[in-house]
Design a protein around this nucleic acid. Sequence first.
RNA 1: GCGCCCGUAGCUCAGUGGAUUAGAGCUCCUGACUACGGAUCAGGAGGUCGGAGGUUCGAAUCCUUCCGGGCGCGCCA
Length: 555
Amino acid sequence: MILEKKLKEVLMKAIETLGWRLAEPTFTLPKQKEHGDLATNIAFILAKQVGKPPIAVAQELVARIQPSPSFLKKIDVANPGFINFHIHPNAYFQLLSTIFKQGKKFGSQQLGKGTKVILEFVSANPTGPLNVVSARAAAVGDTLANILEKVGYKVHREYYVNDVGNQIDLFAQSLLARHLQIQGKEAEIPQEGYQGEYLKEFAKKLPKKKAFSAQQIGQLGVKAMVASQKESLKNFGVVFNKWFLQSELLKKKEIEKSLSRLQKTGHLYESEGAIFFRSTTFGDDKDRVVRKQDGEYSYFASDIAYHNDKFARKFNWVIDILGPDHHGYVSRTKAALQALGYDSNQLTVLISQQVNLLQNEVLVKMSKRAGKLITMDDLMKEVGKDVARYFFLMRSTSSHLDFDLELAKKETPENPVFYIQYAHARIASIFRKALQTKIKADFKKVALELLNLPEEGEIAKHLLEFPNVLAKTAKELEPHHLAFYVLELAKQFQSYYSQAKHDPRYKVVDLGNFETTNAKLYLLKNIQIVLQNALGILGVSAPQRMKKEDAASTL
RNA sequence: GCGCCCGUAGCUCAGUGGAUUAGAGCUCCUGACUACGGAUCAGGAGGUCGGAGGUUCGAAUCCUUCCGGGCGCGCCA
């Protein structure tokens, strides 16, 4: 925030005046009100250098802060050495104009400086519908992409389609078996094949008489699965820039090219009829096969080629979001990149952890083999896009997630999505009310001094934190910070608003007092802007009114 | 056995660039509101931050080790 920046300058100047070695102060938002609005631990950092206890350092520093910036109400030094700054609420209210003026753009930053990022996520096999783990990865990946774009990166969203290999062969054979069965012929799904109902459904749609080869029918199947995954993701608000086919790498001989580069630099060797990549050179547990005994390339070989391709496309930063079962690939992929001469630090791998669906506090068991699995489409039908996305985003990505289906369906404040959306709808409702009462808000001139309730200052302060939250979320690649932030904002508003019931000063629309009404509406407008921006990034809608069954009939 | 994730209130989880009295929601208890600007708000109870060592003036946060839970360890993808 801008106030932090100014405080930092003031402090650095004070440090300089005292002849101390420069250190950059950082600020925290104190939990306790008595500790002011911003606090710094700079005195602790300087203590060693100066050779005095932190409390003394703090006192000396504070004495040198002059002239004290006008937005400061008070500076305290607290044991054992904190400097607590109390900021004049009016400073916050004045800064609201940045939110109002920037509108949808509020929160945008240039941290990324236009760096090209490729974000690969979901990348599930095209052998069936997407499950809830993919859904989580989709929510996380898409939101991270939104955030990175917001803070100044140029983001490319990509889905890698494993459309060749063993699994695809099994898939093809399974589909062919279903096709034959439908025509009353003897056919069995292979041992490790795909048993799911969806293959039956798809097989029914195929021309009956036709005699397909496994390869032909497999291609049709893959095409259909990709199309259906694309559709599911679109309904979830996720659209990719590119669906990258593994088969393309084969066609273009990309695997051969990558491997021959590794060959030339001596990173490959042959053993027992297979070709290995010596990944242990770069810290992997064991060397990995790139060409199998049967002469086929391993999955890993194409993954090397794929990552090589990403770097060749001049992305400065490559982010992969993998499922929990793929974490073993991190070290070998990084090893391969190093062997190819790239900086493996330009690859960031995030693991999107598993999802436990809970129904009545009982884990919903899923078994792929028995064909009993809950798909992403099922989940969306059950709880809706908004709730699903938010629930996936409210936990840190690396943590296992308990998804409470009961809670997800509730339309009560216990459900955070409902609560947040209701805050937004409530503000919209207040504006409708204001219009009805013929109050015409004028935000060109707002009497900020009429915003004088403590909660109003707190809200303004929190609104102005939004860019910081985005920056933190982008830096840590952890969307849950944003999910928590927006929930907190909704809480603040709901609490503030409710006080009107027993305290008339909290009433927003007051016919007898246009100036106050106008100022409060202005604050509300800014809350609404931030709610919309935050929800937009999360991929959750910000409704103008909450729909309820009995209200629907009036339309 | 090795690797990754996790262990914070009864439950689900924030907080882990060390720092002022460890936070929130749910549950439980108490109290306000009788409202279409609706489908709430306020307060209270509740924690040896898995255990033990260590670094530090100061550790939920960093290091070591142990315990517990989940997942993964194919020439499948």
